[in-house]
Design a protein around this nucleic acid. Sequence first.
RNA 1: GCGCCCGUAGCUCAGCUGGAUAGAGCAUCAGUUUCCGGAACUGAGGGUCACAGGUUCGAAUCCUGUCGGGCGUACCA
Length: 572
Amino acid sequence: MNITPAQQLTRLVQEWIDQYLPQPPSGSVVQPCNDPRFGHYQSNVAMAAAKVLKKNPREIATSLVEYCQTADFIEPPEVAGPGFVNFTFKQECLEIACSRLAEDTNLGVTPEESPKTIVVDFSAPNVAKEMHVGHIRSTILGDSIARILKIKGHHVIRDNHIGDWGTQFGKLILGYKERGKPEFPESESLAMMQELYQATHQACEADANKLNAAREELKKLQEGDEENLEIWKFFRDRSQSAFDSIYQRLNVTFDHTLGESFFNPWLKSTVEELSQKSIAQESEGAKVVFFEEDELKDHPFLIEKSDGAALYATTDLATLKYRVDEWKAQQLIYVTDGRQQLHFKQLFSTAGRWGQEVDCYHIWFGAILGENKKPLKTREGNPIRLKDLLDEAEQRAKAILLEKRSDLKEAEAQEMARVIGIGALKYADLSQNRNLDYVFDWNKLLAFDGNTAPYLLNAYVRTRSILRKAEVTGEITGASFHLELPHEQALARLLLEYGTVVDQVTKEYRPHLLCGYLYEVASMFHKFFEHCPVLKAGTGALKQSRLSMCQLTGDVLKHGLELLGIETLEMM
RNA sequence: GCGCCCGUAGCUCAGCUGGAUAGAGCAUCAGUUUCCGGAACUGAGGGUCACAGGUUCGAAUCCUGUCGGGCGUACCA
């Protein structure tokens, strides 16, 4: 297995720690220097150890320096300041590491030693409602997390837990019947259904008889009335095809789309089992789980209403068990907004007492707000449709593209605009720490400067262009590297970190770390591009080396963007 | 009331388990093209890291408190 210079250094310092420090210090052994004057990497262990040993930190640092004198892959290290030890990799060491990286099809991303079966539950739109901006974060984040877990070797199951069952169907069915079951145009069916619901809902508010009629329709549906079931299926199928067209545009796929309705058969038994095991009990006429944890003490988990109906919690419990029993899931990941934190704490705690052996994670994200800092709505008070958002992204990308490239044909421009626009949209969401709320802004979501997808795409396109010009076809094999200039070495060190960065992202499910890294790579490549001529570097080893750097940079960018669910272009 | 999250440059955000002079982009100002794609590069200005204590060689980061904002808190999902 390949080992990067940084990992090699970590081992070396760790050896010294094991031999000379009775109490190994907590924290990282080595870390990158933020100031290039200090070298490539630094270790602060001497200062941490000095505290425990009550010795002079510089003395301890000197011991580490002496220990490292004989290592052949670094320059002799130095003690600096209060007790930092600064390391610089030998040029040769970086060159060898780059050659190995170039041969590694996974670019330093190593598969997990004990892969797991992991279910990623994300997106989850509601039937008969438009997908809106609120769904974008779950969809894009979930997709990226699933991609990253897969590349790490896990068995990933993507499940779209759509909201296809609930009280809204009473009103929908009533309204649909009252209008004489009209046919909807395929493309506008979601808008029609949403309008139908709103109109019927208002009518019910004003007229108690209508409300009762709606309840009656709901009851009939739940009891399996054939006509109502058929109407419900019609709504569901039409909604699904609308969702599918969005997912296709976003290049997002699912292994399963088991909606809430799928779990109806297990709702009763779930409640019964939890009651039998005394995990749930009756309270105020409803069935409830109480908790002992301080955090949840005052927050009972309602699993059956006083009228006997099931709830969100019931479905989630049944779903969880199904995933463990049928799919042998060892880990469950739920990607939803942060308002559901309490719900998932309750769910996970209940599942544990129920005996479900599975690791559960709630990956939550902040809200998308309007300019008034309140949940985003259009002027009419409706959420912004995801479909419109995608359209606008592509249109804006196309306008900018045509401004720069008036020579493009319509079809070419359209396709490039699709990749750039959708990429920019995804990247804007993924590049920000997911826990933060953010204010929706067209210019921000579709920004093409700075830390954005178009900037990364441009760097990638440059690598491809230069390789085309050099008439290099396919992969460069057995690449050798001569890293003479600072910019070459800096780029090399950055590329060698790729695998480590992917690991960091996996740890906390924070794709924005990968975005930040890729931005650094792109930025470093642009600098390399300015300062290190490639095609004009003669015909010898140096030119070959710089071409290899282009190849490697392009590979890392493409690989990283793929993990974010962003497509690349060969030209733009 | 209690719980979770947030407060860093004019704006939008990074800042990893505490490390050396707190970083990017946008905006502003000043430069770079006989040269591999200028969607680029180089430089400048701009900060009491909300506030106050504490922990220590060292704090934007950890602890306590205060202020400000968002969200959640039993029959919606």
